[in-house]
């Protein structure tokens, strides 16, 4: 395929993408809705990235894809069937390697109106499954992956992108949202099989609107637990938050004051659950 070029107008960072991989173009069309501008000359994007086939020899034998941000190549090449996962993780890398104007937390962010809840969690805790559920049940998605906090406030800026679902969650989500816009599966990545799901239109439409964080909820999916809720002390909430902060180190003092301010102003919970409706009802009736 010839080189094609487009702009992802994802607020607050945009990307000019060049690629010679058809699967990337097809997936972006499906996943990014009207946030894609196919005429790539019309705006000044924040970053330029390339994802393309590796060397000619590698095009014929075990084809691979490579990801570039200008002259930098942050990852080893990956087999071509995982190119979409590489692309999405690449965009995350670009943001966390260059952006220091926000305190960035590894967290899902969902909101009703302008009241937002942070769901910071390590991989494997069911965060993305929860994100996909809430975003299809009356909440708007701000991010599945990173919370962009304005320093020293509780204001969170959306960074709407596809939701990344892994392993067992794939079949569940396909059953729950038969009309969902799912990508193909990137098989056997270091996180297992992954699929990307585009959030509903309302999340895309509201992607320029900030929200105020009112609660921090650490989710932990647990097969044997219906829905147990624990209130966390501020100190517990703070230390878990720092463990999920991308650029806390770079921001030094600003990072510290932002996170302490955040835990002091928000309700802080840990939830163990296997029932999403119950968790949703707790969030809507007792937290917001």
């Amino acid at each position: 395929m010839a080189l094609s070029s487009f702009v992802l107008n994802t607020h607050p960072f945009s990307f000019r993408v060049s690629t010679d991989i058809e699967q990337i173009v097809e997936s972006v069309k499906l996943l990014y809705c009207d946030a894609v501008e196919w005429d790539s000359r019309i705006s000044l994007p924040s970053y330029e990235i390339e994802i393309k086939h590796a060397s000619l020899a590698r095009k014929l034998f075990k084809p691979q894809s490579q990801f570039f941000c200008d002259q930098r190549e942050p990852f080893l090449p990956m087999p071509i069937d995982k190119c979409l996962a590489m692309f999405e993780w690449g965009l995350n890398w670009v943001v966390s390697a260059h952006e220091f104007r926000h305190v960035i937390l590894h967290s899902a962010v969902l909101a009703k109106g302008d009241k937002a809840v942070l769901f910071p969690a390590p991989p494997g805790s069911g965060k993305s499954t929860l994100t996909s559920w809430l975003s299809h049940n009356g909440w708007r998605l701000l991010s599945d992956e990173m919370a962009l906090m304005t320093p020293n406030t509780t204001q969170v800026t959306p960074f709407v992108r596809p939701i990344c679902l892994k392993n067992n969650a794939i079949a569940l989500a396909k059953e729950w949202f038969p009309d969902g816009r799912f990508s193909h599966i990137s098989p056997n990545t270091h996180k297992g099989d992954v699929i990307h799901l585009s959030p509903p239109q309302v999340s895309w439409h509201e992607r320029f609107n900030t929200a105020e964080v009112v609660a921090i909820v650490y989710p932990q999916y647990s097969t044997g637990t219906f829905c147990d809720i624990y209130e966390l002390t501020k100190a517990e909430a703070f230390s878990t938050l720092t463990a999920n902060a991308f650029n806390y180190g770079v921001l030094g003092g600003t990072g510290f004051t932002t996170l302490t301010n955040l835990v002091e102003k928000c309700q802080t919970f840990e939830v163990k659950y296997n029932n999403l409706e119950e968790l949703q009802s707790f969030l809507e009736n007792d937290v917001l």
Partner: peptide, 22 residues
């Protein structure tokens, strides 16, 4: 300067300041 440019320059200033402190 354009907003996107201001963003990159602010990021660069924060990084340099942080390196100096660290």
């Amino acid at each position: 300067f354009p907003l996107v440019v201001q963003g990159h320059l602010k990021n660069a200033l924060i990084m340099a300041q942080r390196q100096a402190d660290h």
